[in-house]
Amino acid sequence: EVYKVKIKIERVLPNGEKVEEEITIEVEGMSEEELLALARELAAEPGVRIKEIEIEKLPP
Rank of each mutant, 00 (worst) to 15 (best):
L42T: 07
K6V: 04
K51P: 00
G16N: 04
I50T: 01
I53C: 02
I7A: 01
I50N: 00
I55K: 02
L58G: 09
I50E: 00
A44R: 14
V19I: 13
A37D: 06
K6F: 11
R49W: 12
S31F: 06
V12D: 08
V19W: 07
E26R: 10
L13R: 10
R11N: 01
P60N: 06
I50W: 02
V27R: 05
E28G: 11
V48N: 03
G29E: 06
E52S: 09
G29R: 06
T24H: 10
P14E: 11
V12T: 15
G16T: 01
E45Q: 12
V5L: 15
E20Y: 14
P14R: 05
E41I: 15
P59H: 12
L35Q: 02
I7M: 12
L13W: 05
E26K: 11
A39P: 01
A44W: 13
I9C: 02
V27N: 03
V2M: 15
V27I: 12
A44F: 12
E20G: 03
E54D: 07
V12C: 04
L13A: 06
E54A: 09
V2Q: 04
E26H: 07
I25F: 12
G47Q: 03
Y3D: 01
I7V: 08
P60E: 07
V19R: 11
E26I: 11
K18Y: 13
I53Q: 01
M30T: 04
R11V: 02
I50Q: 00
G47Y: 04
I7T: 01
G47M: 03
I55V: 06
R49A: 09
L58A: 09
A37I: 11
R40H: 03
K8F: 14
K18D: 02
I25R: 06
A37E: 04
P60T: 10
I50M: 02
K6A: 03
V2N: 09
R11I: 03
E33G: 10
M30V: 07
V19C: 07
P60S: 12
E33F: 15
E54I: 15
E56L: 14
P59C: 08
E56Q: 14
P60R: 02
E17W: 12
N15A: 03
V19S: 05
E45G: 12
E52I: 10
G29Q: 03
I55E: 00
A44S: 12
L38H: 04
V5E: 00
E56H: 15
E20D: 12
I50D: 00
M30S: 06
V5T: 01
A43W: 08
I9V: 10
A43F: 10
E17C: 13
I50C: 02
E26Q: 11
V27L: 10
L42C: 05
L58M: 12
I23P: 00
K57G: 07
E34F: 15
I7F: 15
K6T: 05
L38I: 12
K6G: 01
V5R: 00
E17L: 10
K18L: 11
V19Y: 07
Y3Q: 01
P46Q: 11
E1C: 11
K8Y: 15
G47I: 01
E32T: 14
L36A: 06
I7H: 00
K4W: 07
A37W: 13
K4N: 04
L38C: 05
G16H: 03
I25E: 01
V2G: 05
P59G: 13
N15F: 04
P60H: 11
K6Y: 11
I9H: 00
E32N: 14
I55M: 06
K57N: 05
S31A: 05
E22N: 08
I9Q: 01
G16K: 02
P46C: 08
E32F: 10
I23E: 01
L13T: 08
T24I: 11
E21W: 15
E28K: 06
L58C: 06
P60W: 01
R40K: 04
E21K: 03
V19N: 04
L13D: 03
I53N: 00
R40N: 03
N15T: 12
E28I: 11
E20L: 07
P46T: 10
L13I: 03
G16V: 00
E54M: 15
P59I: 15
E26P: 02
E32H: 12
K4C: 03
I23V: 08
I53F: 07
Y3S: 02
V2E: 03
E1G: 13
E26C: 05
E45Y: 12
K51M: 14
E45T: 15
V5F: 13
P60M: 03
E22S: 08
E22M: 09
L35H: 02
N15C: 04
K57L: 10
M30Q: 09
I55P: 01
L42W: 15
I53Y: 03
G29T: 07
S31H: 06
V2H: 12
I53A: 01
E21H: 07
P59L: 11
I9M: 08
I9T: 03
L58W: 12
P14M: 13
I53K: 00
E41Q: 14
V27G: 07
A44I: 10
M30F: 10
A37R: 14
E33D: 12
G16Y: 02
V19T: 08
P14I: 06
V12I: 08
R11Y: 06
R49S: 04
T24N: 06
I7K: 00
E33V: 15
I9F: 09
E20P: 04
E56T: 14
E17I: 13
I25H: 03
V2C: 04
R40V: 06
E41K: 15
S31K: 10
E28P: 09
I23F: 09
I50Y: 01
I55Y: 06
E52N: 11
E21Q: 13
T24M: 10
A43C: 06
R49C: 06
K18A: 09
E21M: 11
E22H: 09
K18P: 05
V27S: 06
K57V: 10
E22G: 02
G29C: 04
I7N: 00
R11H: 02
R40E: 03
E22Y: 10
E52K: 08
E1Q: 12
A43T: 13
T24F: 11
A44P: 04
A39S: 06
E10A: 03
T24L: 12
I9R: 03
V2W: 13
E41M: 13
E10N: 02
E21L: 11
I7R: 00
E54R: 14
P46S: 11
V27A: 09
L35C: 06
E22K: 04
A44H: 08
P59S: 14
E45P: 05
E52M: 10
L35T: 12
E32R: 07
A43Q: 06
L38K: 06
R40Q: 05
K18N: 08
R40T: 06
P59F: 14
E10C: 07
E28W: 14
I9W: 13
K6P: 00
V2A: 09
K57E: 04
K8Q: 03
A44C: 05
E1Y: 15
E56P: 02
V2D: 01
E10V: 09
E33T: 14
E21V: 06
K4H: 05
E20T: 08
E26A: 07
L58K: 09
E33M: 14
E1H: 12
E10T: 04
V19Q: 10
E32W: 09
K4L: 04
E20V: 08
A37T: 13
A39F: 12
A39Y: 14
V19K: 09
I53T: 01
L35F: 07
A37L: 11
R11W: 12
R40C: 02
N15V: 01
I9N: 00
E22R: 05
V2P: 03
L42N: 02
E34P: 03
I23R: 04
P59W: 13
L42R: 10
E10Y: 13
G16P: 00
K57Q: 09
P14F: 10
V12H: 08
V48A: 04
E28Q: 07
E41P: 02
E41H: 13
E10S: 05
K8E: 01
E32Y: 09
K51N: 05
P60I: 08
K8D: 01
I53E: 00
V27K: 06
V48M: 06
I7G: 00
E20H: 09
T24E: 09
I25G: 02
K4F: 05
E17P: 02
R49Y: 14
K6S: 07
E34T: 14
L13F: 12
I53S: 00
L42G: 01
G47R: 03
V48F: 05
V48D: 03
L13Y: 11
I25T: 03
E32A: 10
I23H: 05
V19G: 03
K18F: 09
E26G: 05
A44V: 10
V5C: 06
I23C: 06
E17H: 14
